[in-house]
Design a protein around this nucleic acid. Structure first.
Lengths: 399, 399
DNA sequence: ACGCGTTAGTTCGGGGGCTGTACAAAGCAG
DNA sequence: CTGCTTTGTACAGCCCCCGAACTAACGCGT
């Protein structure tokens, strides 16, 4: 069989996506939007109502149309909860989204012990349960959980290497499955992703719709990670190692004798250590990026000079990325990215000097979700996965 | 309606794709492979046979299986023809593919007049007709035509700017439609793409199957273009300008005073002019890339030195691309890429010096289709488009 | 107030298309 | 030759969409 009820599944999913992306509406509107008859739209809504995913309201459609108004149906936001967990270097960040992918709760748990896999994974289930309990949510409504990892992780849950946690070859999926021990009839769907990819997804989230453009997210903490979104999908490359722009070399010498493998990488020129090194060199008394930002904003000349060099270097990386990927937006997130806010226009101008040949240069902006970007993004990823008709006998339907 | 016969269309397409990707087989095999019943497989084959797309053979399945052997069915290769046209700077290159995307004919037409849009487009229909006639093919079997352009072109046929042809804002789709004036019942489906993207697609073509990896194609002629393939799809970026790595700046200075917008671009360091400049500087008597290659292969020390510098520079671009995209393969094509063949290992080694942190570095190799890469790629693109159930009411099925 | 046109939602018959069972045909093994 | 296995077809059953018909609800003009 081509899936027991393939056509039905496709059409129900189309209804859900329509309500998600374009808002509540009447059955007749659904019929028009999906190009099905009103009878079919009614039948689809009826079975979704029966499954509890959709609610019929008393409200009639407000449209200024002639004729009998319809009864508006909408997503039952409380019927499903999607959880995202970001395993950061010093704390666990958990968010819960409702069926509309709206943020309903978040919780941050600092590590009090060394961040071993067992310790950190042990925090997840209690943390999720506490978060849900605090907001009157039920664990039963959680059908999927996403996990963001600061390192190389396969989407099915094998952490290959997470340098800042010093984790290697950890089968985190098995650990989490064991912690939650769900019955196999109603499994907890798990998804794993790199933190920069998750951050990129969090920005791609756009008014309950899919962002169809191309977006790049620089996650600047100690190092520099990069998440790439193309047509709403994460660009992973071969083996999922795409986005290692931190290892790019943009400061090579044209001289024949120079050993360019010894030239500094992008990360070594704009990462946290590079900023602090510039401070020491310029006599700026700062031991963290936020201090540099505070000094620069207070008008400190030295800190301002550090920013200028940093901005010029960053702009080269941004421009090189822009010529290769042509993203519509480049988003800067992470603690070191706070430097950007000192003078956004400066970074823009520097980058644009390298992009004069382009018709439209990308906009460069700060992350809109701050510290929760990764956990939100990975929760959003599972939300989207569960909403599409994924993988029906090899057919990849995402409507 | 969700397409008049959506399920049927999906399943017929699945049969066609199965026969394309995994070869001829019996109805019973089809049923197993597609997870449908034998009755359904029979019905699907029957309607495809009726439409002339599939042939039933006398041959029984050779499998060493017990029981009654089945009758093998296969694609009717001659039933459809897909044409690709590459508008190069000095000549038109045309290829024809059969229903299996196998190359059946090609033709190159040098321009004898200045390459104005009218002149060049005027060559297309006669060229295609001659090519088909020479190989006993019928224009009626051509259902789609793809066109590759050396410049920025929208996939629906507006050439924004093609610098080496000096074409701007040309609605080439309208011109070609007019030249072929097909009846609207049986339109000629047209597709347009950048030449580097088309080249990338030609390499992604892999044994009648979709190449699911990530591949980057450097098209090195006068400048350097780049085509990116991700999961078998062309990566276009926002506004289709992705792949302008030629404008990347990898030779910047860390010094605070330097104006990096004045540093040479990647194209200016490894493009044709750069090679010739290195020759002049090194006292190598060569006025074309092929002469440099010939000299180097004949053991000329100076030419060898030019190659060394070129290889070192190219490796930096290759490595920077590799860290951002993590492609499984990087393919070098175009006339200037002939330099690569002087010593492929050298380029590999140079690039890998920058990629020591990676588990698996990409393989770097020369283009496998030479001068026909772009025309083949764009023909392959239309073949794939016509084979999938594309865009059924917003459902994007590619199975 | 009252019809009338228009739109919403439901009901029901029709048909396309997949499933599952049944059966004849065609090979192989003993 | 007999039994076993597999192939391809036929037919009944069911799912699900469509289209037509019908009732309900609202605005507007008279």
């Amino acid at each position: 069989m081509a899936a027991p009820r393939l056509l039905r599944t496709i059409n129900e999913t189309r209804v859900l996506n329509l309500l998600l992306e374009r808002g509540p509406r009447s059955r007749a509107d659904i019929a028009r939007d999906l190009q099905v008859t009103r009878s079919t739209a009614s039948a689809l809504v009826a079975s979704l109502v029966e499954r509890g995913l959709v609610l019929e309201t008393e409200e009639t459609s407000t449209a200024e149309r002639i004729g009998r108004p319809g009864f508006v149906v909408k997503l039952n936001r409380a019927s499903r909860t999607y959880v995202g967990v970001d395993i950061a270097v010093s704390e666990l960040r958990i968010v819960a989204l409702d069926m509309q992918a709206d943020l309903i709760a978040s919780l941050t748990i600092p590590y009090t012990d060394p961040a071993t896999p067992d310790y950190v994974v042990g925090l997840i289930r209690p943390g999720v349960e506490q978060l849900l309990a605090d907001h009157g949510l039920d664990m039963d409504a959680v059908e999927a959980l996403g996990v963001a990892i600061p390192g190389l992780v396969e989407t099915d849950g094998l952490i290959v290497f997470a340098p800042n946690l010093n984790w290697r070859s950890i089968d985190i999926k098995a650990m989490i499955e064991q912690a939650f021990d769900r019955p196999s009839e109603r499994p907890l769907h798990l998804h794993f992703d790199n933190d920069a990819n998750a951050c990129a997804l969090s920005e791609g989230y756009d008014q309950h719709g899919r962002n169809a453009g191309t977006l790049a997210y620089f996650l600047m903490e100690i190092g520099v990670g990069l998440g790439i979104l193309h047509e709403g999908q994460v660009f992973r490359g071969f083996e999922g190692v795409a986005g290692e722009i931190g290892h790019g070399r943009f400061f090579c010498s044209l001289g024949d004798e120079q050993d360019n493998a010894a030239t500094p990488t992008f990360e070594e020129t704009v990462g946290r250590e590079a900023v602090l090194r510039l401070c020491r060199k310029g006599g700026v008394e700062a031991s963290s990026v936020s201090e540099v930002v505070a000094l620069a904003e207070a008008g400190d000349e030295g800190a301002r000079g550090v920013f200028d060099v940093w901005a010029r270097r960053l702009a080269i990386g941004v421009a090189n990325l822009a010529v290769i990927l042509n993203p519509s937006e480049i988003v800067l997130g992470g603690k070191t990215a706070a430097m950007f806010s000192i003078d956004p226009k400066r970074v823009h101008d520097e980058a644009n000097r390298h992009l004069r040949f382009m018709f439209k240069t990308p906009t460069i902006r700060a992350s809109s979700r701050g510290v929760l970007a990764a956990s939100f993004g990975v929760a959003y990823a599972v939300h989207r996965q569960r909403f599409g008709v994924a993988d029906v006998h090899g057919l990849s339907l995402t409507a």
